[in-house]
């Protein structure tokens, strides 16, 4: 494995068993993410892009869903071979995640502060007050001017864009090597989307992390990604650098997709 590769996914297969049927949500997906780079997975709903990311984190909804085959190597270590306990240490620590829905991905009954302190205390072993300090720092980094007050606020007191910024702060709290962002801006307005994308770029530079960006918005892809894979029906239909894929798409599905989006 080359030195600059952070994540390597080999022949990943995630199937759903429903009754007698097997739904092949992810059907033999391969890709690699280089250190400090952004890989975007593009596809329509149902193409398996979110399931790919959930498989990496081993958060596939069970018992119907199962990772049946493949390897997910983070810095050479196969995550699929880890025990649940060991995997807990990876989630939120080595891999951070930002979900699409900023309304539901924060716990409504805990303050922002509690939720941002949790991974810091759990993974980094910080004391309460140290975690508070670090939390304030993180919130300032993602653009909360009154971070101390925000720590005491509940998610419902924040707007969608602010919640997504809190999610990014939490995801970045333990300096993860990889940030998985599943449609991070889909639920947001365009002006807020621009803010969040800008912030993600800034955070990536600051922490020198890699990003796995999942989206159906080609504009976002063109803005953020270094490499792109296009998924359709659980399989990768095209894989290329940003320039190649945007300028000279090869697969008919990609060509069709581009036409639709650029119309």
């Amino acid at each position: 494995m080359a030195d600059d590769v952070l994540l390597e996914v080999n022949q990943l297969k995630t199937y759903f068993y429903m009754g007698g049927n097997v739904a092949k949500a992810v059907d033999g997906v391969d890709f690699t993410i280089k250190k400090g780079k952004t890989l975007a997975i593009v596809g329509e709903s149902g193409s398996g892009k979110s399931m790919t990311s959930l498989s990496i984190m081993q958060l596939v909804p069970g018992p119907t869903g199962k990772i049946v085959d493949g390897a997910v190597k983070l810095s050479g270590k196969d995550l699929l071979k880890l025990s649940d306990k060991q995997m807990e240490k990876v989630r939120g620590n080595e891999i951070g995640m930002v979900f699409q829905e900023p309304m539901t991905s924060l716990n409504p009954v805990f303050t922002v502060g509690t939720q941002i302190k949790e991974p810091l205390m759990k993974h980094r072993g910080l004391s309460k007050s140290q975690a508070f300090q670090k939390g304030v720092e993180l919130l300032k980094l993602v653009g909360f001017p009154r971070a101390e007050d925000t720590m005491k606020e509940f998610p419902h007191q924040l707007s969608g864009g602010m919640r997504q910024r809190v999610m990014i702060a939490i995801a970045m709290s333990c300096d993860p090597k990889l940030l998985i962002a599943d449609e991070p801006t889909t639920a947001l307005d365009v002006t807020i989307q621009a803010q969040i994308l800008d912030l993600m770029k800034k955070v990536q530079k600051e922490f020198d992390s890699s990003i796995l960006l999942i989206t159906h918005d080609l504009g976002v892809v063109a803005e953020m990604a270094d490499d792109i894979i296009v998924m359709y029906g659980g399989q990768v239909v095209e894989q290329a650098t940003r320039r190649q894929l945007l300028k000279t798409p090869k697969h008919p599905y990609t060509v069709g997709c581009w036409k639709v989006c650029l119309a």
């Binding site: 365009v190 994308l197 063109a222 320039r243 945007l246 581009w258 650029l262």
Partner: peptide
């Protein structure tokens, strides 16, 4: 200007 463009 906030709409991300696909023209790189």
């Amino acid at each position: 200007s906030a709409v991300p463009t696909t023209d790189i």
